[in-house]
Amino acid sequence: MTALFTPPETFAGLPHGRPGAGCRAAVLGVPFDCGTHPFRVGARQGPEHVRRQSKLMRRFHVSLGDFDPLARLGAVDCGDVALVPGRVAPSFPAIEAAAGTILDAGAVPVAIGGDGSVSLPLMRAAARRHPGLVALHVDSHTDAYEYGEEDAYNAATQFSHAAAEGLVDTAHSWHVGIRGFTYCPGVLARAQGLGFRVVTTEDLFRRGFAQTVAEFRDDAAQRPVYLCWDMDVFDPSVAPGVCTPTWGGLSAREGIDLLRELSGLNIVAIDFNTVSPPQDVNDMAAHLCAHMVMEAMLLLCRQFGLAGEG
């Protein structure tokens, strides 16, 4: 019988639904932004556009095992969290609950934001289930800024809250890729004062990707890792549609290589954030984000011992 209705659009055609037996990873859309950026509001549309660009993704990588990582992980797409963009009070608990459902099923949530603020409720969910959680935050900004009562939650304070709430062990958590100009002085000192290790883009290229990640791997020492990947770590020439573009970032090739270096970590939750479709020329950032999600799926296959032949 001919189908009367089309299924919802999912990442790379994944089955839509909650994770069940045998599911090791689940895509979760988080269509939220605080709506406070001076002129780049729109990351709430990120999950929809990344899923749309994922139609261009092929499932078999010619040089990294020639297998379908989504199938090996038994991955599903849970759809989007039901929330109200811009309203923190009702949305953050909903995001945390949705991620918690995935974690409780034994799967790794692979979230697609949304602006960077969504990392906080996602970290809350991971921290409640994984004591000793550490963060690897790949970004051009620390997102560990000071905040006041009237504007406590935004896309520049999530790691300040993570430290204050004890969600992550800051002594073993790193910010990697920090660069560029800031609105105020003392940004690096502020993050370091909270206990975080900060690796600037200059440090990253001077030390090399392999050496930097090897040191983080030793520091993490098999603790559960929350991987937060802000798409503005890429240079605007390859990812123009992000909330806060900053020149001098990673090329697409460099970002892919950096993610591949993360083998050997105990990654328990991932988010890719800050794709802002209204500013995304030719959907470049969304397409690159879709590719990075696929790279993350390959990374999880290696982590779970699913990357062998056969």
Rank of each mutant, 00 (worst) to 15 (best):
T101V: 13
V76S: 06
S91R: 07
I95M: 12
F67H: 04
L70V: 07
C78Q: 10
A82I: 13
P69G: 11
D66E: 15
P109G: 03
A75K: 00
G65I: 11
G65M: 06
A89P: 03
D77M: 04
A75E: 02
E96P: 10
P85Y: 11
A75M: 13
F60V: 15
F60H: 12
L103N: 06
P69L: 06
G65A: 07
T101S: 12
E96I: 04
G65N: 10
H61E: 11
A99N: 12
F60W: 15
L103P: 05
T101C: 08
V62P: 14
D68T: 01
R72K: 11
V84K: 12
V88P: 09
D80T: 06
A111C: 14
L73Y: 11
C78Y: 10
V62Q: 12
V110K: 02
P85G: 09
L70S: 08
A111W: 02
E96T: 03
P109I: 00
E96Y: 08
G86M: 12
V76K: 01
G106C: 00
L64N: 14
S91Q: 03
V62E: 15
L73M: 10
I102Q: 00
I102D: 02
L64G: 12
F92Y: 14
A75H: 02
V81W: 03
G79T: 09
V88H: 09
P109K: 04
P109H: 01
V108C: 03
L70I: 10
I102R: 00
A71D: 13
E96C: 08
D104R: 11
A105D: 03
D104T: 07
R58W: 11
A89G: 08
T101F: 09
V76W: 07
V62L: 14
P90R: 06
A107D: 05
V108H: 00
V76N: 06
V108N: 05
D80Q: 08
A98I: 12
P90F: 12
A105Y: 08
G100W: 03
R87F: 12
G74D: 01
A75R: 01
G65W: 04
P85H: 11
P93K: 04
P93R: 09
V84I: 14
V62M: 15
P69K: 02
L64R: 15
V81G: 01
D68R: 00
P109C: 00
A99E: 08
A75L: 05
A111D: 02
L64C: 09
G65L: 12
I102W: 07
P90Q: 08
A75Q: 02
A98N: 05
D77E: 10
V76Y: 04
G79Q: 05
P85Q: 04
R87Y: 14
P90W: 08
V88I: 15
L83V: 04
L73H: 10
R58V: 12
T101L: 11
A105M: 02
A94I: 01
